[in-house]
Design a protein around this nucleic acid. Structure first.
Lengths: 230, 230
DNA sequence: CGCGTCCTTGACACATATCAAGCCAAGTGG
DNA sequence: CCACTTGGCTTGATATGTGTCAAGGACGCG
């Protein structure tokens, strides 16, 4: 059982829809658990056994084609909800990209609880609708943008989510630290690692961005990037 | 006000979650309306004013890039729900591909009604989760499949939704009639019209499909197509 | 210091886009 | 009933962006 009253994402996670009695009841069903980078919580095509709130860390949702080519279909951050409620199997895997911590429930427990708490379902519906909008915007990127447009869009989106979060020199000047390696960026954008690398060096050469270290990015010319993002 | 008791999608639409009193109340808020091919109900980036159940016809959800390139991010059939509840603006447009009929509500009316009827929201949540799964599967197609794989996947998916629905010779032998022209297929798959055309003739030459007329398709070798779909 | 992993860079190949022409079927008007 | 037009589709020639293959470089870690 959890002590939800000390939970750092308490006010941003879907739990925020519940009153203190309800939260206690839900807390009894869940358990907090540390995860290490690379650890999978849910497997593509596997039974959807658990759902979770992310307390800390970054997770990828991914689908693997027959030929082994991976496509990342979503990225989840602290306070996001992951898993597939009300479904027998998960059509995508969920894997930690960084070390982190989640608040886990069995899907059965969660489904039952949710069905009895309309406000929770309402909040979940809101989030699912938002995620669907995001997924559809991303479909446009995958289907109709070229490599340059993809990278520019990616950097701007990540900047919005990550800028000024962590505490290191690069972040202070409006930069951010990516929780992804180059291969993962490629898997998000539907490109190869080489194309990602080339586009980044090109943008660096054009003075649009700085890359102080492998995973740090500083946007030097946001307007130009927005133009490129199309 | 509608007479929902005679509605042909009554049992498959989200209304199926309601009892007869509730359905009558909902019916008072909606109105049935004919739409003609090409007519838009919702505009990309516009205020989300209405939502609707599809009674008849096929609709596309689409996003247009700055350069005018369209990406179709979803296709909706009879009994599907369209529109963006609980949101100020719609990130995609909704347009009829064929003549049809919808049961329309203002978003305000619908939002209020839904919030007071948890079973309806529950059903809507189910559907939204399913749509999100579909969108993510489609992201894998857009990001990681080549033209051949895309076409094969498309034909199989459409076959599942459309086979044996309409009443014409092609449909009887396991074929189906597409509600799309070539350009729309291209917009769904993130390809150009020429590539779509070439892949179709190639599949025809290989004996995998028949194309008795522009919009009719018969799958002659489903297994081979499934292999190609990857 | 040496090893492994991740990233970058280069040369080349190929799938798909682009540009351009022609075809076909359906509809229209003489 | 037959030219004529029209819009959608197919086909061909060519261009190009991105993938593929291969080598080398940078950084972190033991």
């Amino acid at each position: 059982m959890n002590d939800c009253s000390t939970c750092v994402v308490r006010n941003r996670a879907i739990c925020a829809s519940l009153d203190s009695n309800e939260i206690e009841a839900l807390g009894r069903l869940g358990r907090q658990q540390k995860v290490s980078a690379g650890q999978s919580l849910i497997w593509e095509g596997g039974e959807a056994l658990v759902v979770a709130n992310i307390i800390d860390g970054v997770f990828k949702l991914s689908v693997n084609g027959a030929d082994g080519k991976e496509q990342i279909v979503g990225v989840a951050f602290p306070s996001d909800f992951i898993g597939r409620p009300f479904g027998e199997e998960s059509p995508y895997g969920v894997t930690a990209l960084t070390a982190g911590e989640v608040c886990m429930f069995t899907r059965r427990d969660f489904d039952n609880f949710a069905h009895q708490h309309p406000e929770l379902e309402h909040k979940l519906l809101h989030r699912t609708l938002d995620e669907l909008d995001n997924a559809r915007k991303w479909m446009q990127l995958l289907g109709r943008k070229n490599a340059e447009e993809k990278l520019a869009t990616f950097l701007l989106v990540m900047s919005k989510r990550l800028a000024g979060q962590a505490c290191n020199p690069a972040d202070l000047s409006g930069g951010f630290t990516l929780p992804f390696g180059r291969q993962q960026i490629a898997d998000i954008l539907g490109l190869t690692i080489e194309t990602v690398s080339r586009q980044l060096t090109r943008m660096k050469d054009l003075g649009l961005i700085d890359v102080p270290s492998r995973r740090d990015i500083v946007l030097r010319d946001k307007e130009a990037l927005e133009d490129l993002a199309a």
